[in-house]
């Protein structure tokens, strides 16, 4: 177990390093640089731009830039944002993290909670009318672009019905002395539309995974054997069948764990949600190299961590993996 874990972790670390190098190189291959945009906005002399280039080190050869970035990163310093100078990248990321965690966590919880429940329901009622309609409905939502669905929901619930806020995470007009309860309620109201949008477009994947996995297990001999010895049906379904149909869903959860932090760039943009997704999108637009790199590294670390956690979960759930 320990050896396996060590090997698996080393693997993840190596992948992380390779991805970081690739990110760094790819980013510099894209046309434009941060100062070009800055200089486009206002009147600046060529000397001033060159001076700024020098200040941020972008005039150095890419290898020099890379080594100084690595030296900084190893010391825990991801550099300073060019767009939001002189704010540090780590400060920017940390300030956006809570909003992303809140949205991503809510969406993961809703997607997997509802998706598993509906998937199990569909498998139990396979080929019934309800099963067919749930398939159609979920695939229709799945096929919708998230930003489009977000706009439609914002227009309907926010503009037409005036029921829900359509942007930001807080009401700017809220009394700053409002009670804790009122402020939480305000955040939750802002959370509804982006969370529902993201859940709606991702729900189908979990439902399909769960339905297929459970249908496969329900056909197996040990399910029949459990019924034949008089185990109550509810126990046959959840304890025997579902427990074995959980593995593919756990794999999917590992794959989606990065959503917890990175959120969705599109949906965060639509609802002006102050999370990491919109930070990354703005940074890309501004060619704010340090911020792009910082957020992208965070996402890649999340992807690797998700895979590692999913493997650990398999290990805990399946005795056959444990022995191998």
């Amino acid at each position: 177990m320990t050896r396996w874990l060590v090997r698996r972790t080393l693997q993840a670390v190596v992948t992380f390093v390779v991805v970081t190098v690739l990110l760094f190189v790819l980013m510099r291959l894209t046309p434009g640089d941060p100062l070009e945009r800055l200089a486009g906005d206002r009147q600046m002399s060529a000397e001033a731009v060159a001076a700024l280039r020098h200040k941020f080190g972008i005039d150095q050869p890419i290898t020099t830039q890379f080594t100084s970035f690595v030296a900084g990163a190893l010391a825990g310093d991801l550099g300073v944002s060019i767009e939001h100078y002189p704010t540090k990248v780590s400060t920017l990321v940390l300030s956006r993290l809570p909003a992303s965690l809140l949205l991503g966590g809510t969406v993961l919880l809703l997607t997997f909670g509802i998706g598993i429940a509906l998937g199990v329901f569909q498998a139990v009622k396979r080929r019934s009318r309800a099963d067919r309609w749930l398939t159609r409905a979920s695939l229709t939502l799945y096929a919708m672009p998230s930003f489009w669905l977000g706009l439609v929901l914002a227009w309907f619930f926010g503009i037409r019905l005036q029921l829900l806020p359509v942007a930001q995470m807080h009401d700017p007009l809220l009394d700053p002395d409002a009670s804790w309860l009122v402020r939480t309620g305000d955040v939750l109201r802002h959370l509804i539309l982006p969370a529902v949008t993201l859940t709606a477009v991702s729900l189908a994947a979990v439902m399909r995974y769960q339905r297929t996995a459970l249908l496969e297990v329900l056909r197996l001999d040990f399910v029949l054997a459990a019924r034949a010895r008089g185990i109550p049906e509810r126990q046959v379904l959840w304890r025997h069948a579902w427990r074995n149909a959980l593995f593919p869903v756990v794999g999917l959860l590992g794959l989606w764990l990065p959503m917890l932090v990175s959120g969705s760039v599109f949906v965060e943009q639509v609802f002006n949600w102050p999370g990491l997704g919109s930070l990354a999108a703005d940074a890309v637009g501004a060619r704010d190299y340090p911020v792009i790199l910082g957020t992208a590294m965070l996402v890649s670390a999340q992807v690797l961590l998700g895979g590692l956690l999913a493997d650990l979960a398999y290990y805990a759930l399946d005795p056959r993996v444990r022995q191998a």
């Binding site: 040990f222 054997a225 034949a228 427990r243 399946d318 005795p319």
Partner: peptide
Amino acid sequence: SIRGRRIGMIFQDPMTSLNPV
């Protein structure tokens, strides 16, 4: 109350008739 209680049953393939987990 009949299944398993009054009539027990065993199957052809013992490799797949037990729950692996």
